[in-house]
């Protein structure tokens, strides 16, 4: 292996700074006792956090985001689990095309997915709302969930499933007694990350919700008004802490039972 390279190390640390510092301004200013986000800081306050308790629209939006996120993550993880299993387990004709097709929503600009779903939804005569948002989010989360699950299932020893069949279990019994418990960390990781993606998603929601705002849409609405900004900052800070926690949990789970990496992460986190 290579010796040290201090130039690259310093560069890497600067890059970390570039990634983290902007995000950290949100929590800093959320405790600042002023309506403008400028230096010097005006003093410490938790008033912006307290303000969140009284915003009924915020609570409504939060609840909408949770509903959409739970439904979208459960459906997309289920669909992705079957698909991941097909790709990791079998070789078949049309494999590449199917894979490309399922990964597409990950690549196509979200605005195009949003517009396309919008057109069909209106022309079918349905009302905009959380249902089309959930459909959009399911579509968008499936490739993410599938990537996570494929990584988990690819290292899987399929002779374990054969052993179970050999020992008298049928296909369903094998799934519940062998495959599912062993995939479980990956499944939970996929669920958590899909939930986060849906929870943070803005464009699809922006086009498809109509009047039922999700949390990002609520924030979008508030960002326009200077006097309302501080409590958006507080909300943002809470969301950042919450997502960070869930993502770290998901990464930890994803690596559980995957050899050395697992120990590495488990010790450090």
């Amino acid at each position: 292996m290579n010796e040290k390279n201090n130039t690259l190390l310093i560069y890497t640390l600067l890059y970390f700074g570039f990634l983290y510092v902007p995000v950290l301004f949100l929590p800093i200013f959320s405790f600042n006792d002023a309506n403008y986000m400028s230096f010097p800081l005006a003093g410490f306050t938790t008033e912006h956090y307290e303000e969140m308790w009284s915003k009924r629209n915020l609570h409504k939006a939060l609840w909408a985001s949770i509903k959409v996120g739970v439904v979208a993550s459960v459906i997309s993880t289920t669909i992705a689990l079957f698909a991941a299993k097909a790709f990791a387990r079998y070789k078949f004709r049309g494999q590449k095309i199917s894979y490309g097709g399922i990964m597409m929503p990950f690549l196509i600009p979200e605005i195009i997915l949003a517009v396309a779903i919008l057109i069909i939804w209106i022309n079918l005569g349905f009302k905009l709302g959380l249902v089309p948002v959930t459909i959009g989010h399911t579509l968008f989360c499936t490739p993410f969930a599938m990537l996570i699950l494929i990584a988990r299932i690819e290292g899987f020893d399929f002779s374990l499933e054969e052993a179970s069949r050999d020992l008298g279990e049928n296909a369903w019994g094998t799934f519940f007694r062998v495959s599912f418990p062993l995939y479980l960390p990956g499944i939970v990781a996929a669920l958590l990350l899909s939930f986060i993606i849906s929870f943070d998603e803005f464009i699809l929601a922006f086009f498809l919700t109509g009047s039922d705002a999700t949390l990002p849409m609520y924030m979008w609405g508030q960002m326009r008004f200077v006097q309302k900004l501080p409590h958006v900052l507080a909300l943002g800070a809470v969301i950042i802490v919450f997502t960070t926690f869930i993502v770290l949990l998901a990464f930890w789970l994803r690596n559980v039972g995957q050899g050395k990496v697992k120990k590495d992460i488990a010790v450090k986190l």
Binding site: W220, M223, I240, L248
Partner: peptide
């Protein structure tokens, strides 16, 4: 701990896109 470095690098990506863009406005 290569994985840890990588997790830390990708962590900011998981926080809301809207908020990250907004923080640049700040």
């Amino acid at each position: 701990n290569k994985m840890l470095w990588l997790v830390l690098l990708t962590l900011p990506f998981w926080t809301s896109y809207l908020l990250r863009v907004f923080s640049w406005k700040i």
